[in-house]
Design a protein around this nucleic acid. Structure first.
Length: 588
DNA sequence: ATAGGGTTAG
């Protein structure tokens, strides 16, 4: 065009800059910038300058954008907006908020584009405080009903962890669109409120809204965390019914594979994973590797990791966490060390706190408690409570009270308000029959007013979820279940399996301890499943905390005597019981 | 006909 002697106008330049931005052609854009300077066109056309600003932001040259922005003789609202969103898109939330302040004090009135960029900045820096002040500003401007603004507000509140505020915005919106629904559902899912997510999904569907791919990707992790296999299956059916535009979406398939894994359906997950030829990406592999780890198949996890690398996919930090966890859950200490080294030396990935936590977990689970302690001491970054907590868990498994006390000091100093760790130490004392120390800790928990999560287990039978809490006799069939469990216990004793009384975690005589063990929620749920599910059907039980060792023994025994498979999902691991043994082979 | 915005999977 230029060679033909046809003069380009500002529209031409805007179009071509958009092209350069989309293809990431930094050189071409910079050349055009120089060309425009010679023509002095940049000075007279706001739209061209703003195109240039947006070009620099999109190719990640936010410094060049800033330089151009600073030299502008006049700025309109789009210039300000481009500068703010340029910063935000390149990880400069703080700078974006600074520019916003400059903008308001310079007398340029922010519009809804400005506000969504600024809200995005608050969201990615996770600062609820600045988000709220922007919300106040929005209300002052009378923009609190605008659809775009509300969607951005909800997303900001969700990312800052306040679903109360997000749902308040949602409920007051005069008009909603699919993005509003996706944002609120995804917000609940990410903030670990899966029941709320499911509730909103149900409301959405019954309100004649058609879920799209994003909705599906938002709701599946909620099914996964609830272990709601039937609901997950129904959503999978919806995806299949709605044809290619949904089922070809890799986000959805990856989320489906993850859902099946976390619902205990590893075989289904693997066959779906296998259909993803050749479109498996890093996330697909990571999900599968983590899945094998969670189900106790460490060797398969390693095989998958190596297959992924052979396929030319470069592992990232998250995929290393998956493989390290898999090693730790299967007691593969040497392999774990190997991957920890590969990660740093070959892949040049700096280990994060999570990687260190995996290593501590790996060492302490396999009984190398002292080594784990030294490992923590030698960390180049400051260990947090989860790191020390992993070692504390190891101390419990291997009954090391002395080390536990030293470790607990670190944990309590770092997270004095987390009841979990006090309970953990109390359990360690209880298992060692140190009742005075147990009492002291209970007093401490009470004095601090801390709330601990009661253990509970649940099971789905005929479409209904039955929840059991330890020692809770409220379920109508609890007498029948207890009778069954007593019979199982007698059978176990006859074959020489005595009850693991130390896990009763109470001071008393043997009979009292046996009674307490019998009331554990996972036993009640398993017993209920055996009594109410058709013969031969797999019993799938979920528990919010870790499985008790005595319950683990009993599950093994019952899988043999009833000829049923039992799948027990606890807070982070699956146990598959079959013919008297468990897939975890003692590691968990 | 020209520049800027909101929601997904590990």
């Amino acid at each position: 065009m230029l060679n033909a002697g046809i003069a380009a106008d500002s529209y031409t330049f805007s179009c071509i800059l958009k092209c350069f931005a989309a293809s990431g052609s930094v050189k071409n854009g910079e050349w055009l910038h120089g060309y425009l300077l010679k023509l002095d066109l940049a000075a007279c056309s706001c739209s061209v300058v703003n195109s240039l600003l947006s070009f620099y932001a999109k190719v990640g040259r936010v410094e060049s954008a800033r330089k151009l922005f600073d030299e502008l003789p006049q700025r309109d609202v789009v210039s300000w907006n481009s500068m703010i969103s340029g910063y935000v898109a390149n990880g400069g939330s703080e700078e974006g908020l600074e520019v916003f302040k400059e903008m308001t004090s310079s007398g340029t009135k922010p519009d809804i584009f400005t506000l969504s960029a600024v809200l995005h900045a608050c969201a990615s820096s996770g600062s609820l405080e600045s988000g709220k002040s922007v919300h106040n500003y929005i209300t002052g401007q009378g923009l609190e009903s605008n659809l775009f603004v509300c969607n951005a507000l909800m997303d900001m509140y969700a990312k800052c962890g306040s679903m109360e505020d997000a749902s308040l915005v949602f409920s007051q919106m005069p008009v909603k669109d699919i993005i509003s629904w996706n944002t609120i559902i995804g917000g609940y899912t990410k903030n670990d409120l899966p029941n709320e997510a499911v509730h909103h999904f149900a409301t959405m569907v019954s309100g004649k809204w058609e879920p799209d791919g994003r909705t599906i990707s938002c709701i599946l992790p909620a099914c996964a965390s609830l272990s709601a296999l039937n609901m997950g299956r129904q959503i999978h059916c919806h995806v299949l019914r709605n044809g290619h535009h949904l089922s070809d979406d890799r986000h959805i398939t990856n989320a489906l594979v993850d859902m099946y894994i976390k619902c205990g359906a590893l075989v289904l997950a693997r066959s779906l994973f296998d259909t993803m030829i050749p479109s498996k990406d890093l996330v697909s592999w990571t999900v599968m590797i983590a899945g094998y780890g969670m189900h106790g198949f460490g060797k398969e996890a390693i095989r998958a990791f190596e297959e992924m690398r052979r396929d030319g996919i470069k592992p990232d930090g998250v995929s290393f966490i998956s493989v390290l966890y898999a090693c730790s859950h299967s007691g593969l200490v040497n392999e774990g060390w190997r991957f920890f080294n590969i990660m740093q030396k070959e892949c040049k990935i700096e280990p994060s706190l999570e990687h260190y936590a995996c290593m501590v977990d790996l060492l302490s689970r396999s009984g190398k408690l002292q080594m784990a302690y030294e490992f923590i001491k030698g960390m180049p970054i400051k260990p947090d409570a989860t790191i020390w907590g992993a070692l504390l868990c190891g101390c419990r498994i291997h009954h090391d009270v002395k080390l536990a006390e030293r470790v607990a000091e670190h944990v309590f100093e770092l997270e004095p308000e987390n009841a979990r760790y006090y309970v953990l130490l109390a359990n360690i004392y209880a298992e060692a029959e140190k009742w005075e120390e147990v009492k002291e800790l209970r007093v401490k928990i009470g004095r601090r007013g801390l709330k601990k999560h009661p253990g509970c287990s649940w099971i789905e039978v005929k479409g209904k979820v039955h929840v059991f809490v330890a020692k809770d006799g409220s379920h109508p069939e609890v007498r029948k279940i207890e009778a069954l469990l007593r019979k199982v216990r007698e059978g176990m004793k006859k074959e020489g399996f005595s009850p693991k009384l130390r896990y009763a975690l109470m001071n008393g005589d043997d009979l009292e301890k046996e009674m307490a063990l019998c009331g554990h929620s996972e036993k009640l749920a398993m017993g209920f499943g055996i009594l109410n599910l058709p013969p031969g059907k797999t019993v799938r039980v979920m528990k919010n905390l870790r499985v008790c060792r005595d319950c683990h023994e009993m599950a093994k025994f019952m899988s043999k005597t009833t000829g049923r498979e039992i799948i027990l999902r606890d807070s982070n691991f699956f146990h598959h019981f079959k013919d008297g043994s468990c897939s975890c082979r003692g590691f968990w």
